[in-house]
């Protein structure tokens, strides 16, 4: 059975009005239920790329097909129903007096009825039910990010894109976010995360990693292949996760390739035996 892609990006080029070319011939297919990370240094084109997914930007050359719709001829509002983008700064969107109204905003725009139960469910899932009647401006950054996420989840897009969702969050909030994303995947959503928080990504159950470097797509594959490819990491101005860097530094990558400290601990006892059997390093 052949799975058809839900998003197809064909030879996408994008140049800003000031002449700066941010994307140079990107080819990419995204399938259902994927968990994809888009990484790259600041200025590599990550944010430009995701803005094409809901039509905020239209291609200079090439095309982007989202659920069969060509973004060049489809309105942002129509595309946004399928692809919900959560941007980095929640304060760039808050304007209502209560969290409840803020979350329901998208429903109003799409002409759907405001469902009090649906709102409750979403707020509960994200652990912000207690903020329902508060002002979104009074919440902490972690809570604000979740309110912004709720305001996108409310209209149930198939694809959820998050732009730097962990920036400024403390460790607890990051682990919490990971839990929320895993739950979304379990509900058959497709999740795209733009991030340079490599340790966060090293803990995430990603299906694929996309690496951008100065507008070029330089890697599209499994996280293990990316994180253990030190030249790729450094040439894209990325710092590899610590555990792979350690394993490579100890030249043990032929035995095991953990990505984070939990995986490393589990595989290490196996590793030690292997090392003893194979003799001294």
């Amino acid at each position: 059975m052949v799975t058809k892609e839900i998003i197809k990006i064909e030879n996408l080029w994008y140049t800003y009005s000031n002449g700066y070319t941010a994307l140079k011939g990107i080819n990419l297919k995204i399938y259902r239920r994927e968990f994809i990370a888009i990484v790259g240094a600041n200025g590599s084109g990550k944010t430009t790329l995701i803005k094409h997914l809901n039509g905020l930007l239209k291609p200079s050359k090439g095309r982007v097909i989202v659920f069969g719709m060509d973004t060049r001829t489809t309105s942002v509002a129509r595309l946004a129903r399928h692809v919900g983008v959560v941007f980095q700064n929640p304060l760039n969107q808050f304007f209502e007096e209560t969290v409840e109204k803020e979350v329901a905003f998208a429903l109003k725009n799409f002409g759907k009825k405001s469902d009090s139960n649906k709102i409750s469910d979403i707020l509960k899932n994200l652990g912000i039910e207690h903020l329902r009647y508060n002002s979104p401006f009074e919440a902490s950054l972690g809570e604000q990010r979740r309110i912004a996420l709720a305001s996108v989840l409310i209209y149930e897009p198939d694809v959820i894109v998050l732009d730097e969702p962990t920036a400024g969050l403390d460790y607890k909030a990051k682990i919490n976010l990971l839990k929320i994303l895993k739950e979304l995947l379990a509900k058959d959503k497709t999740v795209l995360v733009v991030s340079h928080d490599i340790e966060f990504l090293a803990k995430a159950p990603l299906t694929r990693i996309i690496v951008l470097n100065s507008g070029n797509l330089v890697f599209d594959g499994l996280p293990i292949e990316a994180f253990y490819n030190i030249p790729l990491m450094y040439s894209s101005k990325l710092i590899p996760p610590q555990i792979p860097a350690l394993i490579i530094g100890l030249n043990l990558q032929k035995y095991a390739t953990p990505l984070n400290e939990e995986e490393a601990y589990e595989t290490f006892r196996f590793l030690i035996k292997k090392v003893l059997i194979d003799g001294h390093r």
């Binding site: 803005k51 809901n54 309105s75 919900g84 983008v85 760039n92 725009n109 305001s151 996108v152």
Partner: peptide
Amino acid sequence: NNIYDAQRARGLE
């Protein structure tokens, strides 16, 4: 512009 983008992403027309 960023604000406009964020609101459009939620269906504002």
